[in-house]
Design a protein around this nucleic acid. Structure first.
Lengths: 350, 350
DNA sequence: ATTAGCACTCAGGATCAGCGAGTGCTAAAA
DNA sequence: TTTTAGCACTCGCTGATCCTGAGTGCTAAT
């Protein structure tokens, strides 16, 4: 069977309408739509064809039609009209973004909250390092009271620190020597590079502060692993409850229970995919519990080989066009924001 | 009317039973309970009295009785039997605690997750500084490439850092001088102490690096405000959906919508209250949306004049005894954990 | 003071009829 | 050949009705 222009038009109309109303749509309302120049009977015939082709489904005999997953797929790939952000929308998006970003330190978690707020759906935000992080620089500061501060700067200019009690007494000179040794031999190494042999070698050449080497390198390993591990934040789970398809608590619970960070942490593999924006419809989804939901995600660049991903989860019947538009816009501005080196949202530990 | 021993016994039995079953409890089941030595008719009379005293309620004429808020109040204040943690429970609590604490950096957020998990209810965790934080020590590290790292240590030994681009070129000597000046005149000051005059005075005496003073002090203000502001984390909101009283989505949504950090940020006022554990029943609650829920919270000490608060939110019909016991145990161990200086869960930026 | 007995109440479940939106098919019209 | 009007049919939803049973309050006997 062939997919004529008219069939496409009807399919699009059905999806659009269903997205709005969440009710099966029948032939009568379709024929009444502007731009539909044929009778309900004709449309019924076409709908029968579309159903046979697997693009539509019928909840029961005497109900209208609903898009099938395949129908949605076709819709998002070919039929969907671009959604243009209104001036109001861009303005409120911008405003939300500006305000929050300055004030708050946990960028990624904030981002996920904002995405959720602006799409009114559960949202996810994560980052992933493209290349293995290394230490660029060690600093050790004597902090009085028998303790010192380890300051570690990674190759992506993230700075982390930790306060450590001194197991042995130590002068500022000792620390300076140790820092020099560490900077000479332990920088630019992948986490696996911190071998016991290296550790021992460094300890020996570090003189009085040699005892501190394990502590410092332990912390370095910790920081590096923390950097390479991608952080995932999920926000606004409860937003799902607003959707009519989740009036049923059990359905809602099933989905909500798998809406945690872990579900998304398997995702990085697909992060580098070709398209900037990716839409997973129903059964194509990342977890079987999400088979009746869709996920829309968009990539953005952070710089230093880091990438970020923001996305939302919603019922298969969601406004893909709108969500995609908002997500893209947001991602774009995020990228721009991170690119500005003079106002880094979080350049350090906060 | 007088509250006889037998009336108390009956009330306790009703609350206990209702907590278990979530169903109104009738005279028949009560009279069948071990320890009840009177007939259902007698109990009916007593229940009528209790209802008149405002301790019980009747959903409808032909149903059993349900505790009223006042009934719960009396129950938690006088009637509740202490719940003893079983060996299994303490073990799994300990285990959960040990494991997670080492691995994870965001302590408070982790704590809230753990509390939620162990009570199977939405949980909240927060900290509050008892006294205003001050800076104890400044360090400035030249980091090559025209940038430097500000390291700030507060009076509670929390260390924070930020990487800043140098607006002017600067030698290590300049930074050292600046640090010395800052340490001499800007430590032990409350956030309000950073006046424009001070800023100018310091700038002048800092020589070549004077231009950096605003940047550093700005960051210091930021850190201090961040420290004094109490962080609130809420986890496991969806756990509410498991409770039978929230089978109705609309009810659930109403409560869930007010289960965010903001609701609890007004709380610190009551944090210093006398009792370690506090129970807010129904209408006594902190927000009107929570009038049909109860909150159980427990304080714990962090040291350095800091306090923490963990709590859970649940239906008024929750197992107060069990929740209280688990919460107290957890709080106690948290306090112990924070008290150990040699293994601080987070002593630094993480 | 307690208890057995009894009439009464009322939420919840099951059953059933009627409505109406929507369909598929057929036959006529374009 | 395609479109359309007409019509019989399907079936989920709504509301009405009835029934059941758990639970009560009251009264009279113990």
């Amino acid at each position: 069977m062939e997919l004529t222009e008219r069939k496409k038009k009807i399919l699009r109309a059905i999806v659009d309408n269903y997205i709005q109303t969440a009710e099966p749509v029948g032939s009568k309302v379709l024929s009444a739509m502007p731009g539909m120049d044929c009778s309900s009977a004709t449309i019924r015939n076409e709908m029968a064809d579309l159903t046979q082709m697997g693009l539509l489904e019928q909840p029961h005999t005497s109900a209208g039609r609903v898009p099938s997953p395949a129908g949605y797929r076709l819709y998002v790939d070919e039929l969907m009209q671009d959604y243009r952000l209104s001036v109001d929308e861009t303005m409120s998006l911008n405003q939300a973004m500006e305000l929050k970003m300055q004030e708050v330190d946990k960028v990624i978690s904030q981002v996920s909250k904002m995405v959720s707020k602006m799409t009114n759906l559960p949202a996810m935000a994560m980052t992933a390092a493209a290349n293995a992080p290394t230490v660029k620089r060690f600093d050790l500061i004597l902090a009085g009271e028998g303790s010192f501060i380890v300051v570690i700067m990674t190759n992506s200019d993230v700075v982390k620190n930790r306060l450590v009690k001194l197991p042995v007494s130590c002068t500022e000179q000792d620390l300076k020597l140790l820092a020099a040794v560490l900077n000479a031999s332990c920088t630019e190494l992948p986490p696996e590079g911190f071998t016991p042999e290296l550790l021992e070698r460094v300890s020996r050449s570090a003189g009085a502060a040699g005892a501190l080497v394990p502590i410092v390198l332990d912390y370095a390993t910790h920081v590096l692993s923390q950097q390479s591990r991608s952080e995932v934040y999920v926000s606004g789970q409860m937003k799902l409850l607003g959707q009519p398809e989740y009036r049923d608590i059990d359905k809602a619970q099933e989905v909500l229970s798998s809406l945690d960070s872990e579900t998304f942490s398997n995702l990085p593999a697909t992060l580098a995919d070709t398209a900037k924006t990716q839409i997973l419809v129903g059964p194509e989804n990342i977890a079987k519990e999400l088979k009746d939901t869709s996920v829309v995600m968009t990539r953005f660049d952070i710089g230093d080989g880091m990438q970020g991903l923001i996305g939302v989860v919603g019922p298969t019947r969601m406004d893909y066009a709108q969500v995609t538009a908002r997500l893209s816009y947001f991602a774009e501005n995020l990228g721009r924001m991170f690119a500005k080196p003079e106002l880094p949202p979080s350049q350090g530990d906060e």
